[in-house]
């Protein structure tokens, strides 16, 4: 690690100011991705801005039609919140299956989506539920937020403050986790809002995406059998030390089918 100045701003405004004025600033949430990148020398910031004491970022607000989660809420807190479990079990379940216990105790919603790892779980929930991201500057629809591999619509001095998740009629998330990191080799989030169905896929491609043919088929018939004859093309899918495109394409279909089954059973 190289030397850097460490700041712990007490307001969102101060945090944003550091982002604007420091030479090479980097925000820190739980440090779960950020500290390893420092250790591997992939980043050498001049200033680290810890969001731990910025007020208002650790909140959960559960309403009938919407669950709002603060950017600094840890995965463990989301997973164990009785309100989230009741209103949106698919989201609580997703958070509870991220990484391991240590990662869940430190890792945050804001850090996860700002990082936009192609194998991260939360992006699937944001896309699958059609969420809205609130930042220090504006609101961004999830569909516009995740732009490319490790890229988001966030400006350099923009801070995620919270995410609003609409509560669907039915939803479930299923992932096949990497045996070591527990990141999604493939994860599929399925949600049904009345006649509207969303199917978000993470892990398979360079960035989370919606699988249109699945959404169409499930809109017609929200049942596992609706996906039975579907072929998922492996073109453009990720390959890594663990699995190649064909294996991932197969998983997309299997995880989607299982997510539909789980959603029909009440989600999770």
């Amino acid at each position: 690690m190289h030397d850097f100045a460490y700041h712990r701003p007490q307001s969102l405004e101060d945090a944003a100011n550091f982002l604007r004025t420091a030479e090479d600033p980097l925000l820190m949430a739980g440090g779960q991705t950020m500290i390893p990148t420092l250790k591997q020398r992939l980043a050498a910031p001049s200033d680290v801005i810890d969001l731990a004491e910025v007020p208002g970022l650790v909140m959960i607000d559960v309403k009938k039609a919407q669950v709002s989660v603060g950017a600094m809420l840890t995965h463990a807190s989301v997973a164990s919140s009785p309100e989230v479990q009741a209103a949106l079990p698919a989201l609580a379940g997703l958070a509870g299956n991220i990484g391991d216990m240590h990662v869940r105790n430190r890792g945050t919603l804001g850090g996860s989506i700002a990082n936009n790892d192609p194998a991260a779980d939360y992006p699937a929930a944001l896309i699958g539920l059609g969420a809205t991201v609130h930042t220090s500057k504006r609101q961004i629809a999830a569909d516009d937020f995740f732009t490319a591999l490790f890229e988001t619509a966030l400006a350099g001095d923009e801070i995620v403050t919270s995410v609003d998740f609409p509560v669907p009629e039915l939803a479930a998330y299923m992932k096949f986790d990497h045996p070591a990191s527990r990141y999604a080799v493939v994860g599929v989030f399925i949600a049904k809002f009345g006649t509207d169905v969303r199917a978000a896929v993470t892990g398979a491609g360079p960035c989370v995406y919606r699988e249109a043919q699945m959404e169409e088929a499930l809109t017609r018939d929200f049942s596992p059998s609706a996906l039975a004859d579907m072929t998922i093309s492996p073109d453009g899918m990720n390959t890594d030390l663990y699995a190649g495109p064909e294996y991932r394409a197969n998983l997309v279909k299997i995880m989607a089918t299982r997510a539909v089954e789980a959603a029909l059973k009440g989600g999770g």
């Binding site: 391991d100 990497h178 045996p179 070591a180 990191s181 030390l241």
Partner: peptide
Amino acid sequence: LQNTGFLDYRMPVASD
């Protein structure tokens, strides 16, 4: 060698 850490070289843990 391409997998030089425990994130890519998976040893079983208790939950496995």
